[in-house]
Amino acid sequence: MAGGNSDIKFIKKGKRLDGRKPDELRKVRIEVGVLNRADGSCYLEWGNNKVYAGVFGPIECHPRHKQQQDRAIVQARYTMAPFSVNDRKRPGYDRRSSEISYIISQALERVVMVEQFPRAAIRVDMQVVEAHAGTRCAALTAASVALADAGIPMRDIIPSCAAGKVSDTVVLDLNKEEDNYGQADLPLAIVPSTGEVVLLQLDGHLTPDEFEQAFDMAYKGCMDIYEIQRAALADRYGGSA
């Protein structure tokens, strides 16, 4: 964790500084099919986070040497706008964006039926236009919905959510202050139909018991996000979530 400044009291009378209970998500809103040009797209607001995701594909794979003879590859790309953070971020791709893009690609390859499209690429672009902690979870959640909107065959959609620790308390879905000055952050993404874990990171300090508690909390958060994803898709395409 960046600061690890545990002098701040993050929990007062069982409530967090933004008024949430420890196991409460921020408000999540998903809009499906918001862009004209992309084959599939999604706009997601998660608390004050704002993310666009767009999908093109299956398309020809560039560069050629990245082609796989027996399957498609998922080329996910996570980018933050310069104005998405308080101190302007230098435009362009940095090491953090590279890593996040890489692990998101791998998570998505688990559910996309890549074997149906040998040598092709499925391009998934995520643009964070406002960032307040938890943007990798928000981006992956939006990307799954955009893939579904593009009609890409998938085994399931992936929800993602983080848990963490502030003031020695395990909490769900850290906000910006909790992320900056908290004690741990544990982003998780799952395949709900199988219970598989497809993305997991940890940064900070957790006891074995706290890890169990945080992991279960994040897993439950993912399942709640999954319902919101399904409802957004049902809202766009009809049917029940």
């Binding site: 862009l35 040009r37 767009g54 999908v55 790309r77 706008a81 435009p91 791709y93 672009d125 643009q127």
Partner: peptide
């Protein structure tokens, strides 16, 4: 002033520096 032709805006926009 900068402009980013984000990949999600068009299949013709490629990732990389402007």
């Amino acid at each position: 002033t900068t402009a980013e032709l984000a990949c999600l805006a068009s299949e013709q926009f490629e990732p990389g520096p402007p």
